[in-house]
Amino acid sequence: MRARLARFAVSAAVIGAALLAWELAVRFGYLKPYQFPPASRIARGFVELSTTGFPTGVSIWSHTLVTIGRVLQGYLAALVLAIPLGLLIGALPFLDRLTAPVVVFCRSIATLSLLPLVIVWFGAGELTKIVLIAYGCFWTMLSNVIAGVRYVDPMLIRAARSFGVAGIELYRTVVLPAALPRIFAGARMALGVGFMVIVGAEMIGTIEGLGALIMEARTFYRSEITMIGMLVIGMLGFAISSGLAGLERLLLPWSGSLDEVRR
């Protein structure tokens, strides 16, 4: 306990010293404030963002809520489509062989490169943003669900077969539960993708959302606001990912995978 406290104090001191050095470097003119906004400026920017808002009238809270709403809609749409489809493809080897090239191909296309096309198809409104997020999350989720179902430890399959369990019963009682940790890992990864796509998706046709905030700040050389946008996205991603990890620990208490890889 004491050692942990000491470690915490040391890291706090290091971070504090770095921030102080940064602050002083800007004050004495070694760094330009619009390139490297110091902590004091970021703090002032945060006060402005949470009161008057930036652009005026849109506070950091509504930016955040709008972004969360968009990410969740796209993310959930992706899960709803990818999980059943992945369970089906994973169950049928011939279907997996057939679709594997498509999955790898689509997964490899950077989601944002689709932006121009998606605008042509769906306009520059909400739907476009949600479709982009859903696209990014979908392929990550799909390939993880397929992999989870396909690569079940053959020893478990043999054990179940030795009791005469086969076919759909085998899938339901062994393959599905065995695939759950991988499916959860896929859900966490897909969420990360969603937050990565959001900034690009919000670059067009909106002044609301953290992505829009970041782009708008660029126009006015308000680097500290860009940094606040990044920080909030980072914290959101972290919080939701921890929430998912907690959910996994609750639903899959038997799986030790989280103890081994904390992600």
């Binding site: 043999r158 054990a159 062994v174």
Partner: peptide
């Protein structure tokens, strides 16, 4: 299922 019971090497228990 014809009267055979099998014990495998390792990690053949269902972890869930």
């Amino acid at each position: 299922g014809q009267g055979q019971g099998v014990v495998f090497q390792q990690h053949a228990l269902f972890p869930w």
